[in-house]
Design a protein around this nucleic acid. Structure first.
Length: 577
RNA sequence: GUCUCCGUAGCUCAGCUGGAUAGAGCACCGGUUUCCUAAACCGGGUGUCGCAGGUUCAAGUCCUGCCGGAGACGCCA
């Protein structure tokens, strides 16, 4: 249950009883927590938004809303402030209901039906199988995975997908390098020429191929071995990638590859579809602007009228030699996704793929007037150790692998840090900070709050042996005794979780979960410390069992929300540290 | 040249998709442990929210233009 949603419909009901003109537009009415808690528990802009339509002044309309609200049992007080905000406070029992709802829902609290019936495909990672996962892949992987979890929690029907290219020139290079490593495994002395993959990891692939096939592919023409070697290398590396991803808890529902798209006829179908729509023609493009191209010459090509759909230019689908240009398989792949019935397609890509959306969106629009394509671009990650940048160089094969990151700092910290900032910003990942046990480390800070909650619950059993503190007893407790500002401050933070889930899902900004959890942790640590000075603000009070029980319920709710948030982020909550 | 994103405190960044007096952390100064984890908390902020217009009851948030930064723009993948 989202209390803000609940009170929004209450406000709507109230508005209905005020004798306002028919057919008013309530869509801009919001019910939110005010920025400053001293204003009240909730605030609505209804009076200001509707004043003009209703032909009343905002404060007058606000007063009318207040009167009606006050008549309700769950509203303690209501007043008009500033230009016409209606601020109101909930009764203690209304807040008690929120806590009880959290306890009853468990970590399912925060779920929403916002995306009910909407099919979403989130494509992320999608690294080509040419090597192990490394630091450069991790951020997009985590963002995609958490976005998937987030949207699932917001009620969307989510498919997690991985697309890889196993048919281009890049993969042929992989096959040739693998063949060299294979010969090496059989005792030849080899050298990896410029332009091939220098990484040591291909030795394993070569060894493995030698184990399976012996000298079967030695001394043969490339034409004979390239297909089987390519397939072998791709299969091997995809399995390695899956293992790497599993280390940070990422598992895709669907893997799709380019070869499949070509071989099962999807590519041909999608091209025919574009032809049928009259979007294919033979023509000549003007030279690309803003870039010197000495070798450019006009030539007639098979073009897609992508400019009909907002692209800045039409795009060639075939090269001058008649083979498919690289975007054609991608277009076909999106055609396939549209046909699988997705309403929303989301791709998580690095910022260096900047032009991708502009090129792919026209195709999606051509295939469907319903499906919507979004791309989340993530900025680069700078890897630091002790504040010093660590160089990432793919060429030399000297790169930080995902495996190393997880081994050094743990999966939870890797995931949490990757969500520390808005996706498109640059991000620093400091190995030293990620393992630091201090407030400076957000993972630690949030985990510590969760562990402290459980510590309280454990201690309560000993300190209050004759009190039933089982989950059942907590749910049944009289929670209306939670009425100090400090208690309610915690409840208010917890009540926000469903809003955060919805807003973050809609904005496609998984990092908001991380920001929110830090708020929750701060609120908890703060309350905790107050108990040191003021005995009446402790959780466990042998002299006041009813309040203790209610406070324990609050602590349980706190732990639940943190666990729920960490769950969305794919981080395992710890109960002790 | 065109397009996208960014510009908020000394530093790193949030800012709930238009709300009230713009917030955290770091750094700096000071305080808090006979007591549920001090791995924490509390107090200390004179910010042209890049600049200039516009939209509105209300703009850091939306629109236009400019300045500054990053990235993307080939029949390459």
């Amino acid at each position: 249950m989202n209390v803000f949603q609940a009170y929004k419909s209450k406000i709507t009901d109230v508005l209905g009883t005020l004798g306002l003109p028919d057919g008013m537009d309530f869509s801009r009415v919001t019910v939110e927590p005010p920025r400053d808690a001293s204003h009240g528990d909730m605030a609505t802009n209804a009076a200001m938004v509707l004043a003009k339509q209703a032909g009343q002044n905002p404060r007058q309309l606000g007063e009318a809303i207040c009167e009606k609200l006050k008549a309700s049992n769950d509203v303690k007080e209501a007043s008009v402030a500033g230009p016409g905000f209606v601020n109101f406070r909930l009764s203690d029992s209304a807040w008690a209901d929120v806590v009880r709802d959290i306890l009853q829902s468990g970590t399912a609290y925060g779920q929403s039906d916002l995306g009910k019936g909407i099919k979403v495909n989130i494509e992320y990672v999608s690294a080509n199988p040419t090597g192990p996962m490394h630091a450069g892949h991790v951020r997009g992987a985590v963002i995609g995975d958490v976005l998937a979890g987030l949207m699932a929690k917001a009620g969307y029907d989510v498919t997690r997908e991985y697309y890889f290219n196993d048919a281009g020139a890049q993969v042929d290079v992989l096959a040739r390098t693998t063949h060299l490593r294979y010969r090496e495994a059989l005792g030849e002395s080899i050298e990896i020429p410029e332009g091939m993959y220098p990484g040591e990891y291909l030795k394993d692939v070569g060894n493995s191929l030698a184990d399976r096939d012996g000298d079967k592919w030695v001394g043969k023409d490339e034409a004979e071995w390239i297909d089987p070697v390519r397939t072998f290398a791709v299969d091997y590396l995809i399995e390695e990638i899956k293992k790497d991803l599993a280390l940070i808890g990422i598992k895709h529902d669907v893997f799709t590859n380019e070869r499949e798209i070509v071989e099962n006829g999807t590519l041909a179908d999608s091209f025919k579809k574009l032809e049928d729509l009259g979007l294919i023609y033979q023509g000549t493009l003007p030279p690309p602007k803003g870039k010197e191209m000495s070798d450019w010459e006009p030539v007639e090509l098979t073009l897609f009228r992508s400019s009909n759909f907002g692209d800045s230019t039409d795009r060639p689908l075939k090269k001058r030699d008649g083979t498919w240009a690289y975007i054609m398989p991608d277009i076909a792949y999106h055609y396939d996704k549209v046909h699988r019935g997705f309403d929303i397609l989301i791709n998580c890509l690095g910022k260096d793929h900047g032009g991708y959306l502009e090129r792919m969106r026209p195709a999606v629009k051509a295939f469907s007037n319903k499906a919507q394509l979004d791309v989340i671009f993530n900025g680069i990650v700078k890897i630091l150790k002790n504040g010093e940048p660590v160089k990432l160089s793919k060429r030399s094969g000297n790169l930080i692998t995902l495996r190393e990151m997880v081994e050094e700092v743990g999966a939870g910290a890797v995931r949490f840090f990757m969500l520390a900032r808005t996706p498109d910003s640059e991000l620093e990942f400091d190995f030293t900070k990620a393992v630091e046990q201090s407030k400076d480390n957000p993972v630690f800070y949030v985990q510590y709050a969760h562990a402290r909650c459980h510590s309280v619950l454990r201690n309560a059993k000993e300190a209050l042996p004759d009190l039933d503190t089982s989950e059942k007893a907590l749910v049944a407790a009289d929670l209306s005794v939670l009425k100090t500002d400090d208690d309610l401050a915690l409840v208010r933070v917890l009540a926000n979780w469903p809003r955060v889930v919805e807003a973050a899902a809609e904005a496609r900004e998984p990092h908001r979960i991380s920001t929110y959890l830090q708020e929750v942790a701060a609120a908890f640590h703060s309350f905790w410390s107050k108990g040191r000075d003021d005995d009446s603000l402790r959780f466990i009070m042998p002299d006041n069992k009813p309040l203790s029980l209610a406070r324990l319920a609050l602590v349980q709710a706190m732990a639940t929300v943190i666990a729920s948030g960490l769950g969305v982020m794919g981080v395992e909550p710890v109960e002790e540290m």
